[in-house]
Structure formats: C-alpha cells, structure tokens
Amino acid sequence: MSIQHFRVALIPFFAAFCLPVFAHPETLVKVKDAEDQLGARVGYIELDLNSGKILESFRPEERFPMMSTFKVLLCGAVLSRVDAGQEQLGRRIHYSQNDLVEYSPVTEKHLTDGMTVRELCSAAITMSDNTAANLLLTTIGGPKELTAFLHNMGDHVTRLDRWEPELNEAIPNDERDTTMPAAMATTLRKLLTGELLTLASRQQLIDWMEADKVAGPLLRSALPAGWFIADKSGAGERGSRGIIAALGPDGKPSRIVVIYTTGSQATMDERNRQIAEIGASLIKHW
C-alpha cells in the first residue's frame, strides 16, 4: 500500500482519535458579512469528516447552483462504474471539434489522439474542462443518470439537468442544476469515506481534487503551510461562485467545507476574496 493510499485508508482512524471539535460562531459572522459585502445569498456548511456531524452552517438547506462543483460527483459516478466493471479508466475516447464547448483548455489539445477516461476526469476536476465533463456525462448516460446515481446514494436534493455550459445559467428560483450545502457536503463525505467506492477509487477521487489547479484564489489562499486540501470550485452566471473541499491540518483532511453564493453584482475577484476570507476565519478558529 502506498503512503497516499495509507493516508486515505486511515482518515477515519486518525479522526477518531482527534480531540473533540467545537464550532466557532466567528466564522458564521464572516459568512454573514460576506453576504453584506456581496449583496447576495451565501450558503455555508462545515462537517466533521469522521462523524458527519454538522459543526457550523448557514442557509444549509437553500438551493444554490452547483456550477462546476458537480464534476466531482460526476467522476465519482464514473469511478463507481469502474468498480462495477462497467468502465475502464484506460479506455480512450475520441471526439471532434464539434464536441468542444466553451472553456476546454485540455480537451482542445487532444482532438487528434483523444483522451482516456482517467485523463478526462483529471481534466474535468483539476482544470474544470467543460468538454471533458460533457464527454464523461455521455459515458454514464447524461445528466439524468448522474441525478439517479445521487438518488441511489441517498441524495434526493442534488440534481443535474443540463450539460456544460448551460448548467451554469443560475436563474433565480430555478431548481435545475442545483444542490443544497448540506446535501453536497453529505454526498461528498460519502464519496470520500464511505463504502460506495473502493479504496482505490476513493484515493483516485481525492487525488484529482488535491491536484486542483484553478481554485488557488479561494480556500487555498488562506491555508497555512502543512495543511491538506482537496477541492473543486465552480463559477456561473449572475454572480455565482462555489467551492467544495476536504481539508485539515497535519497533512490530512478532517472536515468537509461547502460554500456557495449566487445573485451578486460583485466582480469575480471580490467573490473570490470573500470566500478566501471565510476560509481564513475557519482556519483561525479551527
């Protein structure tokens, strides 16, 4: 067993022997301040990774656009098919120029040779490549099948209805392509620590998230040296922004954090800054 596999296998073990965790309302004060600064709703939840206990939450059962955070769930569904012998990570998928959609920095470079399922998941999570996500959605049967996968996990809230990039439209009061912070946090925890996926697939999923290259201005910008984070960000229309993450000190994750916002007129930089400040408060009061 590799060191990384050992780390993920012992996530519940280490967490069980940690000192009790206590909620700190100071972080919620910052979440509410972010709402004021952005002029928009902000949803927040913080779960203990081992027990699933909610440590703090704000608007945990209000719907927010998922945006690209759905790509972690998508690759979880792909990995479940791999575990069941219905898919192979090494299978190569070929596609054409007509398949390319807006923001496809990886797939646009491989029109000639195609990409493997493993490479597509890596591109979808680490670079948020939209064509990679659409190609992977095709392998599982489309958005409705991802929703069905989530329902089978016990998540009857999260739903995907459309493809990239239309799913980022974020129309107010439109339930399409949305989740709730509580539902997303619980589902992410199941994917990373539950028995739904094999140990190898859980490790692969967290490795992809740990290698995320496009979430630097968010929670990662607030992390002290030595902290662990595996995350996936999302951005959408109407001032929408979000991030889902597993993080913790001492090089291992111990909490799940989900943050979503929508309806702001603020710039992307300002949305990023507010999420980073929430992260800084979380870490300060850990």
Rank of each mutant, 00 (worst) to 15 (best):
A183S: 13
Q203W: 06
E277L: 07
A225F: 08
C121I: 05
M209S: 00
W208I: 03
H156K: 10
F64Q: 03
Q203G: 06
V78E: 03
P60G: 12
R63T: 12
P172C: 10
S128M: 02
T261E: 08
F228E: 04
Y103Q: 05
N272K: 03
Q86N: 14
S51Y: 12
V72T: 09
L282K: 01
N50Y: 09
M184L: 06
A211Q: 14
E35Y: 02
A280Y: 11
K32F: 14
N152A: 12
Q265L: 10
D113M: 06
G85I: 05
A170M: 10
G194W: 08
R59M: 04
K213D: 03
A170H: 11
P165A: 07
E87L: 13
A230T: 01
F228A: 06
R202S: 13
A124M: 15
A124Y: 02
C75M: 06
Y103D: 04
Q88A: 14
V257K: 00
V214L: 14
T187H: 08
P143T: 14
N152D: 14
R81V: 08
D207C: 12
A266S: 12
D129K: 01
I140P: 01
D48L: 05
R118C: 14
E108L: 15
L219W: 03
A84V: 13
K190R: 15
K232R: 07
P165K: 07
K144Q: 08
I171Y: 15
A148P: 09
T267Q: 12
H156M: 11
N50F: 09
W208F: 08
L120M: 06
V29H: 10
K213W: 05
I283H: 15
M184R: 00
V42K: 00
S281P: 04
A182S: 12
G263N: 09
D161Y: 05
L219M: 07
I45Y: 15
V117G: 02
A200T: 13
K232N: 00
V29R: 10
S96V: 12
M184A: 07
G76V: 05
T187R: 03
Q265M: 10
C121F: 00
L111P: 09
S96Y: 09
T147H: 06
E145T: 09
L28E: 13
S240R: 00
T131D: 02
M127E: 10
N130D: 04
L111M: 10
T126L: 09
P25S: 11
T126K: 08
R91N: 14
T107S: 07
P105M: 07
A40D: 05
V29G: 10
D129A: 02
Q274T: 07
G234R: 00
S51W: 04
I93H: 05
L47T: 11
I283A: 13
V257L: 09
L136P: 01
L135Y: 04
P224I: 04
E62H: 06
A133R: 01
Y95A: 04
R41F: 06
D33K: 07
E210K: 12
G52H: 10
T131I: 02
L100M: 14
S254L: 08
V214E: 04
E87V: 10
E61I: 10
D174M: 04
G236K: 00
S51E: 12
R202H: 13
L160W: 00
T187E: 04
L219F: 09
E87G: 05
M184I: 06
G248Q: 01
G242A: 07
R81Y: 09
K30M: 13
Q204I: 14
D83F: 02
H285Q: 15
I93G: 01
Y260T: 05
S201A: 11
T112A: 13
G251S: 13
E145D: 10
D155G: 02
R59S: 05
R63Q: 11
A235Y: 03
S233Y: 01
V42M: 13
H285W: 09
G251L: 12
E119M: 12
P181I: 04
I278Q: 00
E169L: 09
D113P: 10
T107M: 06
L28G: 12
I256T: 03
A246L: 09
N134P: 02
L136T: 04
N50E: 08
S96E: 12
L197K: 07
W163V: 08
I54Q: 14
Q204L: 11
D83M: 04
E169M: 11
N130I: 02
E277H: 06
G141H: 10
V72Y: 02
T262M: 11
I171A: 15
E166H: 14
E62P: 00
L196D: 13
W208H: 03
D231L: 04
I278R: 02
D99R: 08
V258Y: 02
H94E: 08
G239S: 05
D36F: 14
R41Y: 13
S221L: 12
L223A: 11
T126M: 07
V106C: 15
V106H: 15
M115S: 05
E277N: 06
I229Q: 01
L89S: 12
E35R: 04
A276W: 09
A182R: 10
G154H: 08
I171T: 15
M184C: 05
H110S: 12
T178V: 05
R41G: 05
V78G: 01
T198G: 07
T107L: 08
T27N: 05
T126N: 11
V72D: 01
R255G: 02
E26T: 14
P253A: 07
A222P: 10
H24D: 08
E195M: 15
L73C: 13
A211K: 15
G242I: 00
S57T: 07
E35N: 04
Y103H: 11
R255A: 05
L100H: 05
E195T: 13
E175F: 07
T179E: 01
V31C: 06
E56M: 11
L167G: 02
R63A: 10
D33V: 10
S57A: 09
M66A: 11
I171Q: 15
A132N: 01
G76W: 05
I206P: 00
D113H: 07
T193I: 11
N134H: 02
T267Y: 07
D113V: 09
E26K: 12
L135F: 13
K53M: 14
D231R: 03
K213V: 06
D250W: 06
D177F: 01
G236V: 00
P181K: 01
L73T: 08
T261S: 13
R202I: 15
G85Q: 07
S80P: 03
S80D: 15
I125A: 04
L89N: 05
A170K: 13
A77N: 09
P224M: 04
V214G: 12
Q265T: 07
G236T: 11
Q274N: 13
V42Q: 00
E277V: 06
G85K: 07
A245I: 02
D177S: 02
V101D: 09
I229D: 00
A230M: 06
A40M: 08
Q204A: 06
T178M: 03
I244V: 14
L89W: 13
P25I: 11
Q88K: 15
N272A: 14
E169A: 13
E87C: 10
R202P: 00
R92L: 10
N168F: 02
L199D: 09
S57K: 11
F149S: 14
G279A: 11
T178K: 03
Y95K: 00
A280T: 13
T126V: 07
R63G: 04
L196F: 11
L192Y: 06
P224Q: 15
T267C: 11
M153I: 09
T267I: 08
G141I: 05
E270Y: 14
D174A: 05
M67A: 12
A225S: 10
R273W: 07
A124H: 02
V257I: 13
H285K: 10
E237D: 09
V106F: 15
T179R: 00
S96C: 07
K190N: 15
M66G: 06
S254E: 09
A200W: 12
F58V: 15
E277M: 07
Y103T: 07
I278E: 02
G236W: 01
R41A: 12
A77L: 07
H94C: 09
L218W: 03
D177G: 01
L28S: 07
V117A: 04
R189L: 08
E26L: 11
R118I: 13
L111H: 12
Q265R: 07
R202Q: 15
G234F: 01
